[in-house]
Computed example of a mutant assay.
Amino acid sequence: MSKVNASSFVTVRGQAISLETQTNSLISRYSTFAQTTSSEQTAKEKKLDTQIENALKKRQDIIDSLNDICNENPSISASKLSQLQRHKEILQEHWKSFQNIRSSIQQERNRLNLLFSVKNDIAQHNSNTNLNDEDEYIQDEARRIDQSHNVVDRLISQAWETRDHFTAQNNVLNNVNNKTLQVLQRIPGLNNLLGKINTRRKKNAVILASVITLCILFLFLTW
């Protein structure tokens, strides 16, 4: 019975060693996807992921079989127990490596998708902003044109009002002149009187100018 168990142990362990080598090769290939991650899982990556997971589960079944063989044979050698323990450790290491690589790939894929999403959002925002800026620019130009037209209209209106005001003042002055002429024509002696007044004013102005000039000369000479 002991020989049968020992033979079974060697046979089953051979399967474990073969799967360990195969798994190690698969994990090495799988790690390349962590270096060149795509935004979505490719068919090749998905197939390799499934192969590794199935190999690890199959190795767990083999280790369970080895463990049963050891439990059924109390006199099994310490070296075989040590070999069994080593297979368990290698399986744990491979599981850990596989999960770490899978996690790294997923994190990188999430980062790429996030960047892609952010770029799309920025592009969409810039597109909307450009459209809004163009609309606002056109609206601003339309408002400026309307304001310019309003200013021109006000200036034209003020010019017409000023023209009408000057015309009215001119009419008033003409009426005053006409009335003055009519009054002068009605009173013959008034023209002579106004002429004398104007002459007197001119004389007074000449006298005043002469006095001011003499005072200035006096101050200039005595300074």
Rank of each mutant, 00 (worst) to 15 (best):
L208M: 07
V118Q: 10
Q139R: 08
K46M: 09
Q83R: 13
S104M: 14
K47I: 04
D164T: 07
A16F: 06
P74G: 07
L155Q: 15
N113K: 09
S28G: 05
L19V: 12
N71D: 14
S75W: 14
N192F: 03
Q139T: 12
A55P: 01
N132S: 13
N100G: 06
T199M: 00
L173Y: 05
E40P: 04
Q169A: 10
N128L: 13
N54A: 13
D135K: 15
L91I: 11
R163G: 09
E134G: 07
S157D: 15
H149Y: 14
V172E: 05
N174G: 11
R154Y: 07
N126I: 02
Q99N: 09
L193D: 03
V12L: 04
N170A: 15
D64T: 02
V206A: 12
L66N: 06
F9V: 01
S210T: 09
T213G: 12
T180G: 08
N192I: 01
I27A: 06
L112C: 04
T32P: 06
N132R: 15
R109A: 01
N126L: 14
V172K: 14
I17M: 07
E89P: 06
N120Y: 05
L91A: 03
L81D: 08
D153F: 13
V118I: 09
K88I: 08
S7V: 00
K47W: 05
Y30M: 04
A43I: 14
V12R: 06
Q85E: 14
N204Q: 04
W95N: 11
V151N: 12
E93W: 04
N73H: 11
L115V: 03
K196G: 03
N120D: 14
L56K: 00
I62D: 02
N171T: 08
Q60K: 11
L48N: 02
I156C: 12
S18Y: 10
I187L: 01
E136C: 10
M1D: 09
E134I: 04
N171H: 10
S127Y: 11
E89F: 12
L214F: 00
H165M: 10
I197M: 01
C215M: 12
N24G: 07
T42S: 13
L208S: 06
D140C: 10
K202E: 01
H94M: 08
G189R: 06
S7H: 03
S38P: 04
V152T: 13
I145E: 08
T37S: 07
I101E: 03
I76F: 06
A209W: 08
N130T: 09
R13S: 12
I187Y: 00
A55C: 07
R111S: 09
Y137Q: 11
T32W: 03
F166E: 08
I122E: 07
A43L: 11
S18R: 02
R154G: 11
F9T: 03
Q158S: 11
Q35D: 13
S104E: 10
